[in-house]
Design a protein around this nucleic acid. Structure first.
Length: 554
RNA sequence: GGCGACGUAGCUCAGUUGGUGAGAGCGCCCGACUCAUAAUCGGGAGGUCGACAGUUCGAAUCUGUCCGUCGCUACCA
């Protein structure tokens, strides 16, 4: 556990602005990050939660060309869509920006120059396909041709979509430029390379020393290092991207997206600091010995965060490496990997159109793929909402507030003489908060949510055992002690649900008072308790499936 | 092909460094209750932990082989 006041950088995967993101991305990174950040703030730590839209890279230019618009048009469209989603989901960013800012370019160039200066970046010549008609070099994806393996005529330069094999453009039979149709020719071109091989030893030692990391993250990363790290080209023959801070290569070269996107974590922190009025404030998270940095990403991004980014930080010097990278596995939809482009699963927007935000957050948090891929469906989300969230927690709040309203003259009653059982209930709730807090701190978010749900179930059991509705007829004083105890228990359990359910938590804050720390708040005796309206609506599964378009719900 | 992961009750998943009779939620069956969104609470049935062969006093947990599913394979990020 971190000491209160610890600076914690909550670094969240940068959504790629090439298309809509889906519920798998939400469950993989944004939701767990938000839960973690909300908890750490309540625990008294200094959270800086950053991310932004990743706006560069070949897929975006490919899409722009296909639609006859500019890359900026594509990026603006999806950046706006992402912002809308975060708003609706109440993701609590401290800074959500994009890699398209001047600040990001400046930070990227600073890192590039430092690494160049220290010899971790060098220049090499290679042969690349060149389109003489268009007068430009062609990324692999801009080259088409016949697949040498299966004979498919429309294979891409990087992969044949028919047989699925990965390709080198040089392997294509009868290669053609996708821009002009011309036959491309090989020409020498110069590019900068990041010398990852410089870091094989230091990264290996660093990874060996990691404790508490998820096994699959560590295994995967160590495997990469053991295979031997290969130097990678960090520039491309593109005009869409961050400009090089040196002119050695001439026109038409840009820093490529995989190198600069991870720098966003640092540039966003600096942007936040500038906006906060103290431009140096970012150092607390990046240079402090006591600072933690936790990167929330999907497993497809592991090497970028456990190898490449740490290598860049090591080479740059003076900046903290990741404390933990609790990468999630995949959320699958009826067995298939979610993919917005292939129409598998729901986009975030579609999810929000079908479910209220807290309901969606609950169902996904209860299904987070923390250890292994987790399968989900619209029916499964609805089941989680109806059978768990509404039945156990929503109903508990409703029954307790209803009874307090009816039996305690519509106000929080005096605690009165509590029995050992009454005290035990509240002790159990307090213990659950400690347990859930530890679990969230270790990024075991499913387990922590289960802890909260178990605590709610314990309050339900307490009510069934004490039967205050009967007591109200025979011993009203005792009934009020019981109801006051149950209300206090709910008052504590809501804290545990808080990081997961911001909307309903805000409703409860109206009713019971604010939560300003990770503990059961004091209940003000005499505070009015009105007849409640349900916190969550039950989902009509039949109507949902009928109304949602059939395959989207897959 | 190479690398990595997974295969545990009907469903979705947990099971630290191998060790008291294998777990949870939901579903199902029985019972209690009726304050509450027909919600809640208690009890129960249900699994040869993918298959086979090993290591071990002892394996879901380690090793090997096989079957099945999936991801990655570095110009998708």
């Amino acid at each position: 556990m971190a000491e209160p006041g610890t600076p914690i950088l909550v670094a969240v995967a940068w959504p790629y602005a090439s298309g809509s993101r889906h519920l798998g991305h939400l469950a993989g990174a944004y939701l767990p990050a938000d839960v973690f950040a909300r908890y750490q703030r309540l625990a008294g730590n200094r959270v800086l939660m950053v991310s932004g839209s990743d706006v560069h890279g070949t897929p975006i230019t490919v899409r722009a060309d296909a639609e006859g618009v500019t890359p900026a048009d594509i990026v603006d469209r999806y950046h706006a869509e992402f912002l809308d989603a975060w708003e609706r989901l109440a993701i609590s960013w401290d800074c959500y920006t994009s890699t398209g800012t001047d600040n990001h370019a400046a930070v990227t160039q600073d890192i590039f120059l430092r690494l160049l200066e220290k010899g971790h970046i060098d220049k090499r010549t290679s042969e690349q396909f060149y389109d003489a008609e268009a007068d430009r070099f062609l990324p692999d994806r801009y080259i088409g041709g016949t697949c040498p393996h299966c004979g498919y005529l429309e294979a891409r330069g990087d992969q044949c979509e028919d047989c699925g094999r990965t390709l080198d453009p040089g392997e294509l039979v009868d290669p053609r430029s996708k821009i002009t149709g011309a036959t491309p020719e090989l020409r020498a071109t110069e590019h900068f390379y990041l010398r990852l091989s410089d870091f094989t030893e230091s990264l290996g030692a660093w990874l060996d020393g990691r404790e508490g990391w998820r096994r699959h993250v560590l295994n995967f990363s160590k495997g990469w290092v053991e295979e031997g790290l290969q130097d990678r080209a960090i520039t491309r023959d593109l005009d869409w991207g961050v400009a090089l801070p040196v002119d050695d290569l001439g026109e038409g070269k840009k820093i490529y997206v995989w190198f600069e996107a991870v720098i966003g974590y640092l540039s966003a922190a600096k942007e936040w600091a500038q906006r906060s009025g103290d431009p140096e404030a970012w150092r607390e998270w990046w240079e402090g010995d006591d600072a933690r940095s936790v990167y929330f990403i999907g497993k497809d991004n592991i090497p970028f965060h456990t190898i490449i980014w740490p290598a860049m930080l090591t080479g740059y010097g003076g900046l903290n490496l990741p404390t933990d990278v609790p990468a999630n596995q995949y959320l699958t939809f009826k067995g298939g990997k979610a993919s917005a482009s292939r129409g598998v699963g729901l986009t975030i927007g579609e999810g929000l159109d079908l479910f209220e935000p807290d309901a969606l957050r609950y169902a996904l948090a209860a299904s987070l793929p923390e250890q292994s891929d987790t399968d989900i469906s619209v029916e499964e989300i609805a089941r989680r909402v109806n059978e768990e969230l509404v039945a156990t927690w929503g109903n508990l709040v409703n029954r307790v507030l209803s009874m307090v309203n009816a039996r305690c003259e519509g106000a929080v009653p005096e605690p009165g003489d509590r029995t050992a059982d009454d005290v035990a209930l509240l002790d159990g709730v307090d213990a659950a908060l400690v347990t859930a807090g530890d679990q969230i701190d270790r990024v075991e978010l499913r387990a922590a949510l289960r802890t909260a749900m178990d605590a709610a179930a314990a309050v339900n059991a307490y009510l069934n055992a004490t039967e205050p509705w009967k007591l109200a007829k025979t011993d009203l004083d005792r009934a009020r002690v019981v109801l006051g105890t149950a209300l206090d228990a709910v008052n504590g359990v809501r804290v545990a649900f808080g990081p997961y359910l911001p909307y309903s938590s805000a409703v409860l804050a109206e009713a019971l008072g604010p939560v300003d720390a990770w503990r059961r708040p004091d209940l003000a005796v005499g505070r009015p308790v009105e007849k409640p309206t349900p916190l969550f609506a039950k989902v009509d599964v039949e109507a949902l499936l009928a109304e949602g378009d059939g395959d989207a719900g897959a």
